[in-house]
């Protein structure tokens, strides 16, 4: 019974979140101001040709720094877990 209630709740929540999306046309989001801005000014403001790389490494440099740090810490965690599994190899 508990499981049925859980599944029903999840289904209702999913339907609630998905309902507004179903009516949208593909490729036409409501706000495109930022896209237009990056495409128009990306080259002159960052000096790079690839707009995606411009966004990742210049406009959103902090985000990339966080990603790199997350990867670093992930390796730290994997090392901590697996080092002690068999004989404590470093």
């Amino acid at each position: 019974m508990k499981r049925v209630i859980m599944a029903a709740t999840v289904a209702v929540l999913l339907a609630g979140f998905l309902a507004p999306v179903i009516g949208l046309d593909f490729g036409e989001p409501a706000y495109t101001d930022m896209d237009e801005y990056f495409v128009q000014h990306g080259q002159e403001q960052t000096g790079g040709n690839n707009i995606v790389t411009d966004v990742v490494f210049d406009f959103r440099g902090f985000d990339t720094l966080g990603e790199a740090t997350v990867l670093f810490v992930a390796v730290l965690g994997v090392g901590l877990v697996f080092r002690t599994l068999r004989g404590g190899e470093t």
């Binding site: 992930a74 390796v75 994997v78 877990v81 599994l85 190899e89």
Partner: peptide
């Protein structure tokens, strides 16, 4: 490094 760590364990 992740692959090496996982294999070593």
């Amino acid at each position: 490094l992740i692959v090496l760590y996982m294999l070593s364990g």
